[in-house]
Amino acid sequence: MSQELHQDDREFAIRAKRVLDCTVQEMDQPIALRLQRGRLAALERKPRRSVRMMWASGFAVASMAALALYVWAPQPMSRQHAAVPLDDFELVTSVENVELAEDLEFFHWLADDDTTG
């Protein structure tokens, strides 16, 4: 059986639409007011973001935070560099090294002697 509508079927549908439109225009005032109140109540609700959007946003924020931490956080110093200040401290404070500093002229002379001859 063909399900194509004939011309008179289409005209019937147009007449039905016209009648239905009339019922909307002549709607009872109390019903119209209740619909209006329902609409305003619905508009008070805040649109909720979809779960997928929330996950995507959360992932993006977490990624940015991780990147920022990586870029701006103080880099861990290598073992060699980390040890330097302590070595310097020992060098300055030990008695031997104070004597070493006093003999600095001798060491300069020794170095010059090595290069020249």
């Binding site: 329902g38 805040k46 649109p47 909720r48 973001r49």
Partner: peptide, 18 residues
């Protein structure tokens, strides 16, 4: 009918308002 329309309006605003 009023309840159903209001529920539909609420859901549209809440879920698909964006």
């Amino acid at each position: 009918a009023l309840d159903l329309v209001q529920e539909a309006m609420l859901k549209l605003v809440e879920r698909y308002g964006m």
